[in-house]
Amino acid sequence: MPSELQPVSLKITQPRINAYAKITRDPNPIHLDAEFAATTEMRGIIAHGTLSLNLLWRALAGTFGAEACDGAEMDVRFVRPVRVDDVVTAAGHRDEADPSRYLVQVTNQAGEAVITGWARPGT
């Protein structure tokens, strides 16, 4: 297995958030309504966490091929919100303690982790 996953980046724009809300049928105003979002503990619109998480699956598929996702496992935590116009990058490197899996993260343009966890490709 390669030592690193092929990184994947995406700019998180409001139109992308809107499209994701449509496809997931998720009208949560914390993603769509600036006035409502400002009243929450997030103090403004945040993107769906899984909008960025999906990039980790794309990194896995891009590195190994989609067929290697059959039997794959992933465990992640959302550790920081993603804001409109953030550029996020999904990446991963082999876990020295468990070479069958990768330690993965999604970072924002400031290099801050927004998602952390691990992923194991299928066999």
């Binding site: 949560n28 914390i30 409502f36 059959d70 465990d75 992640v76 299928g122």
Partner: peptide, 13 residues
């Protein structure tokens, strides 16, 4: 309204 996802564990069979 206003719930948040904190974590996910997936198995893609």
């Amino acid at each position: 309204d206003g719930g948040l996802h904190a974590g996910q564990h997936y198995v893609l069979h």
